[in-house]
Write a protein that binds this DNA or RNA. Structure first.
Lengths: 144, 144
DNA sequence: ATAGATGCAAATGTTTTGCAGGAAA
DNA sequence: TTTCCTGCAAAACATTTGCATCTAT
């Protein structure tokens, strides 16, 4: 079933007149394996094992393509580094400030609240960022 | 009443064994005048008028101090630049993706939703980011 | 054959740091 | 006077770009 995602990316490339390459495939595979929330840096370090000569630029460029194709989404939990998240339905995140763990959640009520607030202020909402930062269960125990 | 805020900053500095300087005062004044959401860059450009020899580093360092003192808060609406927002109660933002306008809002229900979601996942919430991106009223008209 | 893709090195933009001289306490 | 600040230039980062060389189509 990951195959389906892969095929979508190849289709996207074809539509854009772009090419299917070994590097792009390796990067896509790692991105999918990661289960989401991967940084260009760690992806680069991993992909180097299979492609020792690959450059950072190829990783960055491919990740941008994944974002354009709609398969990935850029997120910014840790201020100065971009992570790439697997795109599914609109969802939000809980981020542990100690261990960095990220848990996704999806609540109807967030959606409703967003529409409601935007309407009141005359905004036409397009997307949102809802991130709750705190301590996950494990880190609470290690602290207390 | 801005004076009160200023006094708080001087107190903070004194407690930390730090000093009150003309540059810090100029930066604080501009930060307060801006009404929030100011970038180091624009603050630097403005403060240069009164202090032609001031350096970027002084601006950055002072803004960090303001954040540490609890008077300011770093926010990241536009991916690659940090803005400094005046810290008041926890509040959230609507950001216009076209003109960059930022509107703050404060809804009891966001607070409740945050607690509810965190509880369900076993997180101890500390802070959040809730930003709705879209078109403000004016930009909708210019588009449609 | 031809438009694209790659890898490298150099450039970018933002933020930080080292340091010598200057100022607040 | 002592400790902290400042401004400058240089360093650090993450990310992007120019370009000559390769490669998928």
């Amino acid at each position: 079933m990951e195959t389906t995602v892969k095929v979508k990316f190849w289709e996207f490339l074809r539509e854009q007149g772009l090419r299917q390459t070994a590097q792009r495939e390796a990067i896509l595979d790692l991105f999918l394996d990661s289960g989401g929330h991967i940084s260009p840096e760690s992806l680069f370090n991993t992909v180097k094992r299979a492609h020792p000569h690959i450059g950072y630029s190829t990783v960055y460029r491919t990740l941008k393509l994944l974002a354009q194709s709609g398969l990935a989404q850029e997120v910014h939990f840790h201020e100065d580094q971009t992570l790439y998240d697997r795109k599914s339905e609109q969802h939000d995140h809980l981020v542990c400030v100690r261990c960095g763990r990220v848990v996704e959640f999806q609540f109807e009520s967030v959606e409703r609240l967003q529409s409601e607030i935007a309407r009141q202020q005359g905004f036409l909402p397009q997307r949102r960022k809802f991130e709750i930062y705190g301590l996950c269960r494990e880190c609470q125990q290690r602290t207390a």
